Amino acid sequence: MKCMQCGGSMTSRQETRRSYGGLERVIMEGVQVRHCPDCGEEEISYSNVEKLHTALTLQLAWKEAGLTPREIRFLRTYLGLSGSDLARRMGVTKETVSRWECVDKPLSMGPMAERLLRLMAVREQPVTEYPLERLEHVATTEATPLRVRLKPRKQDWTVELST
Rank of each mutant, 00 (worst) to 15 (best):
C39G: 02
E95P: 03
T77Y: 02
T11S: 14
W157P: 06
P131K: 07
Y78N: 14
P106A: 09
A65R: 11
M4G: 04
E142R: 12
M28A: 07
D38Y: 02
L86Q: 00
R115L: 12
M90V: 06
P111N: 04
T57V: 15
T140N: 04
V31R: 07
R18Y: 08
L146N: 08
E136T: 13
G22D: 09
R99S: 14
E160F: 03
K2G: 09
Q32L: 12
D38W: 06
L117W: 02
W100Y: 13
K154M: 09
G66M: 00
P152L: 04
V148P: 03
S47C: 04
Q155W: 02
P152E: 08
P126M: 14
G7A: 12
R25I: 00
V103A: 07
P145V: 10
C102L: 09
M4P: 09
T163E: 12
R149F: 00
S9D: 14
L81D: 05
M120N: 05
G7N: 11
L81H: 00
L119K: 11
R13P: 01
V26C: 08
E42C: 11
F74R: 01
L135Q: 04
V148A: 13
N48C: 14
A139K: 02
M90L: 13
V33D: 07
G83C: 09
R147C: 15
G21P: 01
R153C: 10
Q155D: 15
V49I: 15
M28N: 03
V31Y: 05
G7D: 10
C6F: 03
A55Y: 01
S162Y: 02
D38M: 08
E124I: 04
E142H: 06
G110K: 03
W100H: 06
T16V: 05
L60R: 01
S12K: 06
R118M: 13
K94E: 15
E160M: 03
R34E: 15
R25N: 15
L146I: 12
S9L: 14
V49Q: 13
S108P: 12
L119Y: 09
W62A: 15
T11M: 08
Q14K: 10
P131Y: 07
T57I: 07
N48Y: 06
A143C: 04
L75F: 02
G30N: 06
V159R: 10
V127R: 02
E114Q: 10
D104L: 09
V92L: 10
Q59G: 14
P152T: 01
Q32R: 14
G22M: 00
R153M: 06
V122L: 10
I44V: 15
Q155V: 06
E24M: 12
E101V: 12
T68M: 15
I44D: 03
